[in-house]
């Protein structure tokens, strides 16, 4: 089976643009609402979907995604629901890569083997585990990789040259550059610092580089898209779900379409 993540990054590259990666928390505001939001993202032009696994204590997330986690858990979302959402998504969208993002404790509650098997069976392409740094890779990394699921690593503004090789060791799928030293959805990084960071990462790895944290507008996405292989938008979408609840899907689709439009326009301008 062709690797959906590398296939999609290659396709975007061929179009001269960055991949659009959009995030939503599974089960926000409830499990029934999520399929329509995921479909809206794909219809709006998202290339890769990040599905958040809710956790009671999301300490790397800002208020927007934290509240989404609590809304989801408050409406009764269970881990089995998250995998059911993933499985159904895969049945509807054979080619769109799906990445689970979350925290170690829910992922490992039934053991790494169980989690990796569920990911594989549900057609999950990659996992981002916020609180497992390379030093603790043994908890989850080998098992996921053996199951053919990428463990996506994060590089941050504090990841210096000395440390970068450790982050890249075992990294696969893509490299997620966290643009700000902080939590999700709060500050916004200066474009110049993103450009320097992406250039540094590209010199160190052939993996696609996706940039996230604090990306809220089509203009910002386009600017980052000029240098990075992917742009991640999360909190801005989660805010829309927070405002519109069960009726969020069309609003999400419009916003994702605007993001995608900006990336496409930027690619055409660059080509011209």
């Amino acid at each position: 089976m062709a690797d959906r993540l590398s296939t999609r990054f290659a396709a975007c590259k061929a179009q001269g643009r960055a991949a659009l990666i959009t995030f939503v928390t599974a089960g926000d505001p409830d499990v029934a609402a999520t399929p329509a939001i995921l479909d809206a993202m794909v219809a709006g032009g998202a290339d890769i979907i990040e599905l958040g696994m809710p956790f009671t204590d999301p300490m790397a997330d800002g208020p927007a995604i934290e509240l989404a986690n609590l809304r989801s858990l408050g409406s009764g979302t269970r881990t089995r629901d998250v995998f059911a959402l993933a499985t159904e998504f895969r049945a509807r969208h054979a080619d769109t890569p799906l990445v689970l993002m979350g925290y170690a404790n829910p992922m490992l509650a039934r053991g790494a083997d169980w989690f990796a098997e569920q990911c594989k069976a549900a057609g999950v392409d990659g996992v981002i585990c916020v609180d497992v740094p390379p030093e603790e890779d043994a908890e989850i990394g080998p098992t996921l990789r053996a199951a053919g699921v990428h463990l996506v690593r994060l590089a941050t503004p504090t990841t210096d040259a000395q440390r970068l090789p450790a982050v890249l060791q075992g990294a696969s799928g893509f490299l997620y550059h966290v643009a700000v030293a902080g939590v999700t959805g709060k500050q916004q990084a200066a474009q110049a610092s993103i450009e320097i960071a992406v250039a540094r990462l590209k010199a160190a790895t052939d993996l696609p580089i996706a940039v996230g944290f604090g990306v809220r507008s089509p203009e910002q996405a386009a600017a980052i898209g000029r240098v990075a292989d992917g742009v991640v938008v999360g909190s801005a979408i989660v805010d829309i779900v927070g405002s519109h609840g069960d009726a969020a899907a069309p609003f999400v689709q419009d916003f994702v379409a605007a993001l995608r439009g900006a990336l496409t326009t930027q690619a055409q301008e660059t080509a011209a």
């Binding site: 300490m59 790397a60 170690a104 916020v130 609180d131 497992v132 740094p133 030093e135 603790e136 690593r153 994060l154 590089a155 941050t156 503004p157 504090t158 990841t159 210096d160 440390r163 982050v167 966290v178 030293a181 902080g182």
Partner: peptide, 14 residues
């Protein structure tokens, strides 16, 4: 035990 923190904190922890 161990060090289960976000990558941003790892350099400081080290």
């Amino acid at each position: 035990g161990g060090r289960y923190v976000a990558e941003t904190l790892m350099p400081l922890i080290l």
